[in-house]
Design a protein around this nucleic acid. Structure first.
Length: 260
DNA sequence: ATGCCGGGCGAAGCCCGA
């Protein structure tokens, strides 16, 4: 079973690229972030024509997350618990039945947090704390769990082309790194790092300054696995080539294969 | 280099992303 996560940076602006990718890569489940459209404007027909069922948590202009699945989608939860006042569409989760044990998946879009001297950083850190608490509750169910998304945190110096250039940025602050580390320390596995030890493998390249051409990237998109899911992990890869396509997102898809 | 791209909104120029 192939599961991909991808921050598409506006689904409607990215529709040709997304459809091409889904046709070529044929994931069983796609976890999308930054769809930037309300559910009524989601291009459902084109995606359903490729054989996907949909679960949406959209929002006008900003954020927006979605789950696409070739199998039925059950037990959908929209929104991250822990703050009733939070109306940003950054989380959706669902249960996907398989021939083996079902897989619970979540599409996650953590806040950016910049600038660091603004309330946005506090929102980010609190959001990561809420994600930790929720992930902790999910882990108690002892299911195969795959949390996929743009976590907006650079974990180590090996995950950025130039650590000094990102010093002081909300993506690379010790508080942000600790926020993601605390989530991993629950017992979740960073699927890409479980399969690859080589440094400087990125999932995001800025549109500016020729970042893609110079390979000035960062790794901020993750697939995090419960022990039950990690035991089923067969492969995890970054589809870097998609960044070179016509009219690309600034993020690329990251996928994994788990045993059925 | 905190805006050099790129998208949304909405119809010019600002807000936002990472």
């Amino acid at each position: 079973m192939k599961i991909v996560t991808w921050n598409v940076n506006s689904l409607n602006a990215r529709l040709p690229v997304v459809l091409q990718y889904l046709r070529q890569s044929r994931p069983d489940v796609a976890l999308l972030q930054e769809t930037k459209c309300v559910d009524e404007k989601f291009p459902a027909g084109e995606i359903e024509d490729l054989g996907y069922n949909l679960a949406l948590n959209g929002q006008k202009t900003y954020n927006g997350v979605a789950i696409l699945s070739k199998r039925p989608i059950e037990d959908v939860r929209r929104g991250l618990p822990g703050d009733e006042a939070d109306d940003q569409a950054r989380y959706i989760e669902a249960l996907i039945p398989t021939s083996a044990a079902p897989v619970r998946v979540a599409s996650v879009y953590a806040p950016n947090g910049n600038p660091p001297d603004s309330p946005k950083l506090a929102y980010k850190l609190n959001w990561l704390h809420r994600l930790r608490r929720h992930a902790g509750n999910l882990l108690k169910q002892e299911e195969s769990l795959v949390l996929g998304g743009d976590l907006n945190v650079i974990l180590t110096d090996d995950d950025v082309h130039d650590p000094a250039a990102w010093e002081g940025d909300a993506l690379f602050l010790p508080q942000s790194i600790n926020g993601l580390r605390a989530i991993l320390n629950l017992g979740l596995t960073d699927a890409y790092r479980a399969c690859h030890s080589e440094p400087h493998r990125y999932t995001f390249w800025d549109y500016q300054r020729g970042a893609w051409a110079k390979d000035h990237g960062i790794r901020i998109d993750y697939l995090l696995l419960s022990p039950q899911a990690a035991d089923r992990l067969k492969a995890c890869e970054i589809d870097k080539q998609v960044r070179g396509w016509e009219k690309p997102s600034d993020h690329v898809p990251v996928w994994l294969e788990i045993e059925e």
